[in-house]
Computed example of a mutant assay.
Amino acid sequence: MPFISEDFKERLKRESPTPPDESEEFTRVTGHIVLGIIVFAAVVSYIATGFFSAQLDVISTRLASLVPLLRPRITFLAAVDPSFPAQYAAGVISFVLVQPIGIAIFARAYWRTVVKKRLCRPVGPVTPITMLLGAGLLLVFVWATFGTVPSRWDPRYPGMARIFFPPIYQILASLISSLSAFLSFAILVGFLKFLFLRRGHR
């Protein structure tokens, strides 16, 4: 972002809820957790599709009924291939499943590598901006992965629309599931620091 000064970029990084240099150990562990969640979510999605396709068909129909925002995507997928809505539903289920599990794993790692070692950085005036940016990215990524429908679709030239179809879609959904869990965790840490740790550890 060229319109943002380098000093402000550095301040955004320094006053983020979980700054990268707050704990090298947590940064290292986070990489392993993110990769583990991606693999876990993908495996859950593929296994569910392989063994519970009939049930997932029913779930996709219910999703279209209960969550109108998802209906256009499900309708689009069904028109391309009748088996795709079930695999989409598996991606949605793995996403929902991963969120509480992922947040809990990140929280446990943060507690052991940062909080217990009294390494928490204090929040600052810029922290709410980083939290809003994180929330904005979270909404954009989740909507792009689960809600958008290609505006122009030609089965002869699928182009980037391939990412919405199996087997690539499960990988994309797993990646976003992991990223979403981390961003949600970081935003939660920001709120907790504002409540209990405005000046850092004494």
Rank of each mutant, 00 (worst) to 15 (best):
S83G: 08
S16V: 09
E10R: 15
L35W: 06
F194Q: 00
G124T: 14
G134L: 13
V67T: 09
R156K: 10
I101C: 01
T49C: 07
H32S: 14
F182C: 00
A42G: 05
M131C: 12
D154P: 13
F196G: 00
P122V: 07
W111C: 07
Q55C: 04
G91I: 14
A181I: 04
I59S: 03
L172M: 10
F182R: 04
E15Y: 11
A144G: 12
T127Q: 11
V34C: 05
G102V: 03
V44I: 15
M1L: 14
W111G: 11
A54H: 08
I187E: 00
Q99V: 07
R28Q: 11
R62F: 06
R152G: 07
R199T: 07
T130P: 00
F141M: 15
T113W: 08
T148Y: 11
V34Y: 06
H201M: 02
G159I: 13
F8I: 14
L137V: 05
L12D: 12
M131D: 12
P100W: 10
V43W: 02
L133E: 01
V115D: 00
L66D: 15
V189E: 01
Y88E: 01
F165V: 13
Y110H: 14
S174Q: 01
L183S: 04
Y169F: 10
P2T: 09
V98Y: 04
K193A: 00
R152E: 12
R121E: 12
A104N: 06
A41K: 08
L97S: 15
R112H: 07
K9P: 06
L192N: 00
S151W: 04
G147A: 15
T30A: 13
F95T: 08
P100E: 08
S60T: 05
G200K: 03
W143C: 12
G147D: 03
A48R: 08
R118L: 02
D21R: 08
S177Y: 02
A41P: 10
L197N: 09
L138F: 13
I4N: 06
S53Q: 06
V39S: 02
G31H: 06
L133T: 05
T27Y: 06
S53E: 09
M1W: 14
T148M: 11
A104V: 05
I105N: 01
I105A: 03
A54E: 10
R162A: 03
P125S: 10
G134Y: 07
R118P: 01
I4A: 06
P125R: 12
S65K: 14
I33M: 03
V67F: 12
G134V: 08
F26S: 01
P125V: 08
S178A: 15
E15V: 09
V126Y: 09
L119I: 05
A161K: 03
